[in-house]
């Protein structure tokens, strides 16, 4: 009877337990220690190796609001690191939500950057892979105006951009398509280095690209963002959310183990009953 019940726990019970476990650390973070993964160090070291005098980084804001919980902390942490180092950033979006999320990053950066000189939000270009290709071919002329309506010619930062080779690094924050495959297909050989911040569910798919060196670095999901925040010494929303995610994982693991233990013993009972 109990074994049967443990194998068929009502989904409302699972939802309630999960909700309580997720809400707790969000209201009062626990501060579970976080070790830094190799991939996050790679991203950090890559940005540390850039030269503030000559290097410009393109931030592709290709994530949707739906996936922002996973990717936005990465974008904020990387932008903060770049701003702290005085490296110029050009934000471009190939998904419609991108420019608004880029504005959120700009609001967080605040006085660390001067808009138009250190950073620009070019806006959104529709067209998926074709749009990616167009920007790679003509980065200086694809957007006549930025997201805020300023003429591109009036922005000092854009005077440094003539071809895609003027970017030293592209960091693509993405939740789907267009994403890493579109960039890797369209970037010219010898072009800028490509790094990505992706949603956790996509991590298994991109591992071969990291292994082959096509990705210069990778930030995996919320954990990547949280680790990056710790690395730059500015724990933020990513680190706070990691407690909730961590406990959420444990709840799921516990339910799976309970279900399987009950399943195992019910099978044993069945067998001994037959004898």
């Amino acid at each position: 009877m109990w074994l049967e019940r443990l194998q068929n726990i009502d989904r409302r019970v699972i939802y309630t337990v999960l909700l309580i476990v997720l809400l707790g650390p969000m209201i009062k973070p626990i501060g579970i220690p976080l070790t830094i993964n190799k991939t996050t160090y790679q991203m950090y070291n890559l940005i540390e190796s850039l030269n503030p005098q000559s290097d410009i980084v393109m931030l592709a804001m290709d994530y949707s609001v739906a996936g922002a919980a996973d990717v936005h902390p990465q974008a904020v942490a990387v932008a903060k690191h770049l701003a702290n180092r005085g490296i110029k950033m050009v934000m471009v979006a190939f998904v419609p939500d991108g420019p608004m999320l880029a504005e959120r990053v700009l609001n967080i950066l605040g006085d660390r950057v001067t808009y138009g000189e250190d950073i620009v939000n070019l806006g959104y270009l529709s067209g998926g892979e074709s749009a990616v290709k167009k920007f790679i071919d003509e980065p200086a002329t694809t957007f006549p105006r930025d997201h805020r309506g300023n003429a591109i010619s009036s922005l000092p930062i854009m005077s440094n951009i003539k071809t895609i080779h003027d970017f030293s690094l592209i960091v693509d924050f993405q939740t789907g398509s267009p994403g890493y495959q579109d960039f890797l297909r369209q970037l010219p050989a010898g072009g800028p280095l490509y790094a990505a911040g992706i949603v956790t569910v996509s991590v298994p798919n991109v591992m071969p690209y990291l292994d082959s060196g096509q990705f210069a670095a990778l930030l995996p999901g919320l954990r990547g963002g949280a680790e990056y925040e710790v690395l730059i010494g500015e724990p933020g929303e990513g680190a706070a959310r990691m407690d909730a995610q961590s406990l959420g994982h444990m709840v799921i693991v516990t339910f799976i183990i309970v279900g399987n233990v009950a399943y195992f013993f019910s099978k044993r009972q069945e067998k001994s009953g037959r004898r």
């Binding site: 579970i32 994982h249 444990m250």
Partner: peptide, 10 residues
């Protein structure tokens, strides 16, 4: 899953 959860690491 456990490898990705900092609490499991503890």
């Amino acid at each position: 899953m456990l490898g990705n959860a900092p609490i499991a690491e503890q």
